[in-house]
Design a protein around this nucleic acid. Structure first.
Lengths: 249, 249
DNA sequence: CTTTATTTTCATCATTCGTTTAATTAAATT
DNA sequence: AATTTAATTAAACGAATGATGAAAATAAAG
């Protein structure tokens, strides 16, 4: 009677299963960098690129590992799971943008003196760090911004979005409240969502404005984008003061 | 020698394959409704609901067919493929919104007399049909609007989005151009994207504004949403006239 | 060099996916 | 009633997914 698994080259799977504990490194030595850190960065960059280009959950680990030029098993070895990989990709750059935004706002506060910074200053402090990092030509930042925009539209990732963006959001909502004292608290929240919406729409990289305008406009033209979005949002936000006033009779 | 497929209850797959032609109905009799039309509607409704709640490509046909209470094979029988199902779900309500929007704009044109309708009238004609259909309490429209918002963020579905929304977009971009004669053509495109962005952000149903405002605001409150978004967008659009003027020195 | 810990590779796992086939039931037509 | 057509059901298919196991390779430590 011939053996059944004639195609099996290697050893067959063990009958009695061994331990199922995690075998990844625990912490490693305190000071220095780990040996596989370079691989981690390569995978993170490739994941960033693939997630920004494709349709997020539709992007497989194999696509990412092939783009990175590493074995697929390394992804799970270094990051544990696909979910953790997505988390690390997004959290990697989040703090830098947050800090840059807050710093710009602090500078505006200092420049304004005793009165709170105006709408223009707040909006600029919020938008500038994003758009600047895109126009810098760094493909990584371009990919990051695109994938973050998509992320905010997916209910499944709402907890992650909160962790990434809630500090920034609440910080600038407060600043907007101070800049628009006559607007109601509700109006400020609505205005912030409209601001995010305008930003996301031109940053998600769907190619829609390029098609609609038949090449006349491009989201890659961040200078123009900045010149258009700032007045739009600022004027829109100022209108909220009237909305609140009307609502209060 | 015992047979190899002892677990097979039914007949094994045929060795020589027969024809591989499509077996779906061709056209059926001219006038009346088909026998399976009720099933089609049930599947479409279930798909609409599932796609709006979940993360689109992450929603499986099995989830949809279970929600509809029908066999999974019926989905492919009636729609041919998942892609076609998504197309039918989205196209089902697209025309109605488009017609309502254009009708409202025509009424505004008539009311305005010789001059073109103003920004407020154009924006209202664009936004009102959407928001009205949500506040109507029809869960189907709520689901449709949410899933369409998500769809516009996915590059993979850009061709479908174009087919669904390009007529409306170009129609209202023209109207905006007439309402804002001093704004540059580029600015109009940017402004339209910002308008879409604000709308999408409050319609996608991510629950973000509810969390940020800790329940103070809700996207289900369409009356408030309408009262906030219209002044915001209108004032924002008017700012584009200045942008263009400044850019032209 | 020897030993130890970490990283990489190869092979395979169990699931789930969209889709298809063949048989069965129901309805419409003759 | 007999025949033809459409709709529904049950079962399985091949492909792809995220994840894991156990060796092999590599570097570090003694």
């Amino acid at each position: 009677m011939p053996q059944r698994n004639a195609v099996a080259v290697r050893t067959p799977p063990p009958g009695g299963r061994k331990r199922a504990v995690a075998k990844r490194p625990v912490l490693a030595r305190a000071g220095g960098a780990r040996r596989g850190d370079a691989t981690r960065q390569i995978i993170l960059d490739a994941a960033e690129q693939c997630l920004a280009a494709g349709d997020f959950d539709g992007v497989s680990l194999r696509t990412i590992s092939e783009a990175a030029g590493v074995d697929i098993a390394l992804v799970n070895y270094h990051f544990g799971s696909k979910e953790s990989l997505v988390e690390e990709v997004t959290e990697r750059r989040a703090r830098e943008v947050h800090d840059a935004r807050v710093l710009l706002l602090e500078e505006a506060r200092h420049a304004a003196g005793t009165v709170p910074p105006g709408v223009e200053a707040v909006v600029t402090a919020f938008l500038e760090p994003w758009l600047q990092r895109i126009s810098s030509g760094d493909a990584g930042w371009q990919n990051y911004n695109r994938l973050l925009c998509r992320l905010t539209m997916m209910p499944k990732y709402l907890p992650l979005v909160r962790k990434l963006l809630d500090p920034t959001a609440l910080h600038f909502i407060n600043a907007l409240r101070a800049a628009l004292p006559k607007a109601s608290p509700e109006s400020i929240y609505w205005g912030y969502m409209f601001l995010i919406g305008a930003l996301v729409q031109i940053m998600a990289g769907t190619g829609r404005i390029e098609q609609l305008s038949r090449g006349l406009c491009s989201t890659d033209d961040t200078n123009t984008a900045m010149r258009e979005i700032v007045p739009f949002v600022c004027q829109g936000l100022r209108a909220l003061e009237r909305t609140g006033a009307e609502a209060r009779r």
